[in-house]
Write a protein that binds this DNA or RNA. Structure first.
Lengths: 341, 341
DNA sequence: AGGCGCAGTGTAAGCGCTTACATCATTTTT
DNA sequence: AAAAATGATGTAAGCGCTTACACTGCGCCT
């Protein structure tokens, strides 16, 4: 019962197949360099031995890990799931492995995870949004680890980003809603500190207010963590303020569904009594009652393009180029004109 | 601009601090073995050089990675998020890093990820549910990688598991619902192939039917992937069958919320016209309208206990012991007695 | 005073791979 | 037919770390 035989190594395979370790290594990494006969023989012994290359040894010798790290703010909801799935599929098809961790929207946790990922030899990193301590970007540059930012787009920043313009996306939605004649505007935003996406979305609403002849300073704004519960609480609180907003823009769909629940609890009809919007267009937006008017983010495309660009940065050792993938408004049932006073 | 200086190594630190590499290594891994004076000096040089140990080299030499892998079926919804979060927090506090990947409920993808994780030197693995090719368990045993199963509990299986009894949990819920006098029972289950949790939940409903004097073969059963859309579709389809079920048990909360939407679309009131139940008690269950009666799974406790047990298996080189954490019924608004015919 | 134990440190042998370079057997070229 | 190019394989030097073992000098014992 106690066969303490350690896992087979490259050497074992080489010996058993009667070739050198170099040949075995080539069979694995560069098969067309080896003659058919040898290759088949080696592959057979690999299989019969149940050999799996040792990753640490390999990455140490090759100074490459074919691993890419991604740090997302949360796994608690589906916001990043679809994009990440596409990201990982693309990576996989190009021979890379994805390492994911989540920072729970905490800057220090993210920083620690960045260091861990780098120490583990990640060939590149995907980060969400631009906002973070400049020292981190320095560190990454010093370690020569390519970084790409997603879910944001800002052509004026050194770090390349692939995503969309959160500000103008939110602005487009708000333009459309305000055109319905809403005068009292509320917004439930995610915490904007260290979160450029949240900040830009707020700015987008303000832009639209200004453009619509309203005073942006009149925006009733509450910032809360992204969760159903906080959405409900913030909404309830907001509805007790004067003037009571006739539309509440939410920082994302989760907050919006929370707000929807708050409305139901208060006996407010949506959109007759109050309009509510989301952001992201995750599946939830369609399941909610009423269905959410929201901003559709190019989840999968973002993931796919990010993977391509990051790999290019790694393999061609070049600077990444930013790309704006755009976002579009999805009009559903949660928005209507304000109630006549 | 082109300082091609590679990152500093242990050797660099040793040389600069005027000690041997062994001493530097000790300062990092076993500080109390080194005299205060030396330790301080070394730590200063480490800091001034910005040295980070090379993970591959370290794990190669130490034959330990302090890494634990987890493969979950999906990240698309929050089902595994809370438990995994707790798992990772526990690991982190004990100095381990978590590597997560998701298999999209696909056995072959899972198998590939298991091999990847093992090749990466994971010290241990967390897997969801028991069902998988026995060859995988063999492989894992041969590679001497401890494995722990979560989200299931089965004391009769060799692989240790920490979770709850899906069958009796679902049975308890069904007992309670059927006692309300429901005679026509429907169930929307997740795909049960290679998924013991899904199978056990079906069995639980059947157990309750039998106990309640019904014929378990009369269960109207549809199996679909876990998604809102599939829940809605399956529900719609099921409501067109004869006899039309007066209660629909769903394999999880996501399916149940999908079913809820289906009911709304068909103009059916819940629970007056039809009762619907979920499973998992993720936050969504509380946000849904009406709120879902469901089974509360001990998410965080499972994660925490799994981490403790897996680490014990690794560090004490012992077989893990299974543990049933139990689950409880949460009664909310989506269940009522059947409509009088 | 001589011997012992021990704390603190150094020496050096790997860990399992990749890859530059060397070697050898075939082809192809002139 | 000899020379050169080509293809397949082997040799061996690391990659950056950990750790068994060896060594040193000190305080303590008898």
């Amino acid at each position: 019962m106690t066969d303490m035989k350690p896992p087979p190594t490259l050497d074992d395979v080489a010996r058993m197949a009667g070739v050198s370790t170099a040949t075995v290594s080539r069979c694995i990494n560069d098969p067309q360099m080896v003659s058919d006969k040898t290759r088949v023989r080696v592959q057979d012994t690999i299989k019969s031995l149940g050999y799996t290359p040792n990753f640490a040894a390999r990455s140490m010798a090759a100074k490459r890990t074919f691993t890419i790290g991604a740090i997302i703010p949360t796994m608690e909801n589906a916001i990043f799931a679809r994009g990440l799935q596409a990201f990982q599929e693309s990576l996989h098809s190009r021979g890379y492995t994805l390492l994911v961790s989540s920072s729970a929207y905490q800057a220090d946790a993210e920083e620690e995870q960045i260091r861990t990922l780098v120490a583990r030899g990640a060939d590149g990193l995907l980060l969400i949004g631009h906002d973070r301590d400049p020292a981190i970007y320095d560190y990454l540059a010093r370690q020569r680890v390519p970084v790409l930012v997603a879910w944001s787009y800002d052509k004026d920043v050194a770090t390349p980003s692939i995503g969309f313009d959160n500000r103008s996306a939110m602005r487009a939605l708000a333009d459309q809603v305000i055109a319905l004649n809403h005068r009292h505007i509320g917004m439930i935003s995610g915490v904007s500190r260290a979160n450029d996406r949240a900040r830009m979305r707020i700015a987008g609403v303000k832009d639209a207010m200004t453009a619509g002849g309203l005073d942006a300073d009149d925006l009733t704004l509450i910032e809360v963590p992204y969760s159903f519960r906080h959405g409900t609480e913030a909404f309830t609180q907001m509805m007790q303020q004067e003037p009571r907003p006739s539309v509440v823009f939410c920082g994302n769909d989760v907050l919006a569904v929370g707000a929807l629940r708050g409305a139901k609890q208060m006996g407010l009809r949506v959109p007759e009594d109050v309009s509510i919007t989301g952001f992201d267009d995750i599946e939830l937006a369609e399941v909610a009652q009423p269905e959410l008017t929201t901003v559709r983010v190019p989840h999968r495309k973002m993931g796919t393009r990010a993977a391509e660009e990051l790999i290019a940065m790694i393999e061609e050792k070049r600077t990444g180029v930013s790309e704006d993938l755009g976002a579009q408004i999805v009009t559903r049932q949660s928005v209507g004109p304000p109630k006549a006073p």
